[in-house]
């Protein structure tokens, strides 16, 4: 029977930070360390979440089927364009209602910078949409308008929703075009 060999050293590899030479005092005088430059290293961080849309899931299923649903408090009729499963005033459960995604621009901006995830898409237009059937607003992208023409008169313009042909199960499965 051969004897099991257990290594007492960590084998060097070329992963992570590879250091060949770091300046350090050679003698006993360590006082200069108070003035040394900080060491900065790269620390990668990446993760995939199994994220659940929970009670809001039907909204995304609707988008994937080319339909736009909102939630309504059954007794008061208060209607949320961005769905909420419970009403914030009565505390009661809301019900799903389908509406035509046609409304008006309530507020907008053109983003020339952004989060890293969206930088390749700049400049892009964000709008808050108001629908006649709803008491609250919906955040979406306006596509097809000239970003150089941005002006306050965009507010109030009619917009119409369009659905992505291949849904990504994100709120951007619907986007908006100017309807006039």
């Amino acid at each position: 029977m051969s004897k099991k060999v257990i290594s007492k050293r960590i084998e060097d590899n070329l992963q992570g930070t590879v250091v060949f030479s770091v300046p350090f005092p050679t003698g006993d005088d360590l006082s200069s360390l108070k003035h040394m430059s900080p060491i900065v290293i790269k620390q990668p961080y990446s993760i995939d979440y199994n994220y659940s849309y929970g009670q809001d899931s039907p909204f995304f299923a609707a988008l994937a089927n080319g339909r736009f649903i909102v939630t309504r408090e059954p007794q008061t009729g208060y209607t949320y364009a961005t769905p909420r499963a419970h009403d914030m005033y009565t505390g009661r459960e809301t019900e799903w209602v389908e509406i035509k995604p046609e409304g008006r621009i309530h507020a907008f901006t053109v983003c020339y910078f952004g989060s890293e995830a969206f930088l390749p898409e700049t400049p892009f237009i964000l709008i808050q949409v108001e629908f006649d059937e709803c008491d609250t607003l919906f955040l979406g992208r306006l596509i097809g308008a000239d970003t150089d023409d941005a002006n306050i008169k965009w507010i109030g313009k009619k917009v119409k929703g369009r659905f992505l042909r291949n849904a990504k199960l994100k709120p951007t499965d619907i986007y908006f075009n100017l309807a006039e």
């Binding site: 507020a107 964000l126 992208r141 709120p171």
Partner: peptide, 30 residues
Amino acid sequence: NEFIALASDISFDYPVGGFYSGYYAMMVTR
């Protein structure tokens, strides 16, 4: 900017173009 934008609803707001300056700019236009 992305980290800060994660302080917005990640189901409905962040994926549309999460960027706080954009959110505040919409408030300005209104």
